[in-house]
Design a protein around this nucleic acid. Structure first.
Lengths: 146, 146
DNA sequence: CCGTATCCATTCCGATACTG
DNA sequence: CAGTATCGGAATGGATACGG
């Protein structure tokens, strides 16, 4: 899966992608945010081979993004749940979702939506703000190398 | 690169990942946001094989995320620049960056930073808001299937 | 139901050589 | 400098069979 270890890269984007930047890992994390936690649930949802799923769950666990918890009701089988670090990927998922909504769907074409738990309304679009509160767009911010 | 086409998937996250959810594509897009545009610039920055880079640039162009522009000063060689669709990935990159900053760096460890072009200050942390203006965290929003 | 192990086809990726 | 062509090793991914 890895071309080269980038754990020491000075760019946070590179380190993030080093940890979760492959297709199946991102899809597993998406499903985990949707509440899936069991091996079979992921497999059914994603339709990938079991050996691949097992490998991905293992590396995600090793990297502290998922954690293994004992089965709830005395069941023999355990659950894979997002850790605090894993839940930190929430906004990455939201950003991917909103880009997909804006880019790949014709007006009126149905798709799943992200909704406020309290009210059931759709959430707002993500916005980046400057320190003094101006909304920033792609050209309004630049990366400063270390 | 593709296990299965998910262009028709009802989940926007899946469609997004289908388009850009591999490691090198994300890194190329990162560099494109940093202003790189020439073949050799990407190759030097990323250190990947030229055939792989050529293949990625081709698919990103086919998918409308990058566009080929003629060389600026009458130069023979063209540039790869983000399209409007590609610039829409700005918040995805910001989210990946902020997660990486929070997750992989020890306090005080230096890393590149994202700064407001006008003031030079670091940008705020991304925040998701509900329709009525409450800040939402991971558990406060759920995906409603179509 | 949850995984591991194995086999096999495909793809990825790096390195190199070659053309314009 | 900007690619294309090719080769070989490694990893991916699907399918299946097997044990807890």
């Amino acid at each position: 899966m890895k071309r080269k270890r980038l754990e020491a890269d000075p760019c946070p984007v590179a380190r993030s992608l080093d940890a979760i930047g492959d297709w199946w890992s991102l899809m597993i994390i998406r499903d985990a945010f949707d509440g899936l936690s069991r091996f079979g649930e992921f497999q059914k949802s994603l339709g990938l081979a079991k050996n691949i799923l097992a490998a991905r769950l293992r590396t995600l666990t090793e990297r502290g993004i998922l954690a293994v918890e004992p089965g709830a009701e005395g069941g023999a089988y355990h659950h894979y749940v997002l850790t605090e670090k894993g839940r930190g990927l929430f906004l990455v998922m939201v950003a991917l979702r909103q880009w997909g909504e804006a880019t790949f769907y014709a007006p009126g074409e149905p798709h799943s939506t992200l909704r406020d738990t309290q009210t059931g309304d759709e959430v707002r679009r993500l916005t980046l703000y400057s320190a003094d509160g101006r909304a920033l767009r792609a050209g309004d911010a630049v990366v400063r190398k270390v």
